Amino acid sequence: MKRLVAYITTGYPDKAFTIDLALALKEAGVDSLELGIPFSDPVADGPVIEAANLLALQKGFKIADLLEVSEAVAPHIDTLWMGYFNPFYHKGLDFFLQMARDFGVSGFIIPDLPHEEGGAYRKRFDDHGVALIEFVAPTDSRERIAEIVEGARKFIYMVAYAGITGAEKSESLEEVIDAVRAHTDTPLYIGFGVDEKTAKEKARGVDGVIVGSAFVRILLKENLTHTQKIDKITALARTIKEKINE
């Protein structure tokens, strides 16, 4: 059974909604949840997730909101924190690692922390029993992929194309998949541009998909009630889960 990871922006439209949506996604078949930490300059994300980030910040998002949401949802669904390095650095990585261990958060996804720089922090992650998710991309050489995936924990995040999330782009990934498989048994998940139209094709050869913009796009619809947003997002999650396992 291929797995579905869902990204949602923490605190938008509010933290109570985030908790309700997270628990509903679990019931809809989502296997793991990325709680996105709103940041003013999300360089790896496209306009949809960027808009949600900015709106959450405008509504007063604080790290305390992330912690409250995580405490409520992590006992029920495998939870990761997805954020840029600045907030982790500013408040202290050890603080976040301790909170993650306390709440049962299983991993961090930090797209602007290159593998080489991440090496300086990897032991601290290991000591807390928290995974630092590694990225591979079509632009990586086989030699670099071998280095990246050595010791990778939980899963490897394969970027579907060079660019930002939510774009409708496609690149041949067979060589990347082969290079990863040659060096590790760690599950390989694909992200960037995955939605109900692309999920089946993108899931070929990998162990799961990561979906963000397709969910957040619904989150941003101001004409929908909270209940309608949850209904539409969970229905989409069910559709994608079915498609990747056809």
Rank of each mutant, 00 (worst) to 15 (best):
residue 161 Y to V: 02
residue 149 V to Q: 12
residue 42 P to S: 13
residue 16 A to H: 14
residue 229 K to C: 05
residue 2 K to Y: 09
residue 192 F to C: 00
residue 86 N to E: 08
residue 46 G to I: 07
residue 27 E to K: 15
residue 93 L to N: 12
residue 140 D to C: 12
residue 139 T to P: 02
residue 212 G to L: 07
residue 16 A to C: 09
residue 57 L to R: 03
residue 151 G to P: 06
residue 2 K to E: 09
residue 94 D to C: 04
residue 35 L to I: 07
residue 161 Y to N: 02
residue 104 G to K: 07
residue 92 G to S: 10
residue 53 N to W: 07
residue 71 E to A: 13
residue 125 F to L: 05
residue 35 L to C: 03
residue 4 L to E: 05
residue 12 Y to S: 02
residue 138 P to I: 11
residue 4 L to C: 04
residue 211 V to Q: 00
residue 225 T to I: 12
residue 94 D to N: 15
residue 46 G to N: 08
residue 16 A to G: 04
residue 220 L to R: 10
residue 45 D to H: 02
residue 178 D to S: 14
residue 17 F to P: 01
residue 54 L to F: 07
residue 190 I to F: 01
residue 174 E to I: 11
residue 53 N to Q: 12
residue 119 G to L: 13
residue 171 E to L: 14
residue 74 A to S: 14
residue 206 V to L: 05
residue 144 R to L: 03
residue 175 E to R: 12
residue 20 D to V: 08
residue 120 A to C: 05
residue 196 E to V: 08
residue 152 A to W: 04
residue 147 E to W: 13
residue 171 E to N: 01
residue 4 L to N: 08
residue 171 E to V: 15
residue 9 T to A: 11
residue 216 V to W: 00
residue 61 F to G: 07
residue 139 T to C: 02
residue 90 H to N: 13
residue 79 T to K: 13
residue 227 T to S: 15
residue 221 K to E: 14
residue 127 D to C: 01
residue 176 V to E: 10
residue 125 F to P: 05
residue 190 I to T: 13
residue 55 L to R: 15
residue 124 R to P: 04
residue 75 P to R: 11
residue 133 I to W: 05
residue 148 I to T: 08
residue 15 K to A: 10
residue 100 A to F: 08
residue 245 N to A: 12
residue 136 V to P: 09
residue 61 F to N: 05
residue 135 F to K: 06
residue 134 E to V: 11
residue 162 A to W: 00
residue 43 V to Q: 13
residue 46 G to K: 03
residue 147 E to P: 01
residue 242 E to I: 04
residue 218 I to D: 04
residue 36 G to P: 02
residue 179 A to G: 10
residue 53 N to M: 10
residue 176 V to N: 07
residue 196 E to F: 02
residue 49 I to D: 00
residue 171 E to W: 02
residue 171 E to C: 06
residue 25 L to Q: 03
residue 124 R to K: 14
residue 142 R to I: 09
residue 235 A to K: 14
residue 189 Y to A: 04
residue 144 R to F: 03
residue 66 L to P: 00
residue 34 E to L: 00
residue 3 R to C: 12
residue 94 D to Q: 14
residue 145 I to A: 01
residue 22 A to Q: 08
residue 45 D to Y: 01
residue 42 P to G: 06
residue 70 S to I: 07
residue 98 Q to T: 15
residue 164 I to A: 09
residue 183 H to T: 07
residue 195 D to L: 00
residue 131 A to G: 00
residue 124 R to S: 13
residue 160 A to V: 01
residue 90 H to S: 14
residue 37 I to R: 00
residue 56 A to I: 02
residue 23 L to Q: 11
residue 140 D to N: 15
residue 40 S to M: 10
residue 237 A to Y: 08
residue 124 R to F: 00
residue 70 S to Y: 03
residue 56 A to E: 01
residue 120 A to P: 01
residue 213 S to Q: 03
residue 168 E to T: 13
residue 54 L to G: 02
residue 188 L to F: 05
residue 174 E to K: 14
residue 206 V to S: 05
residue 47 P to F: 00
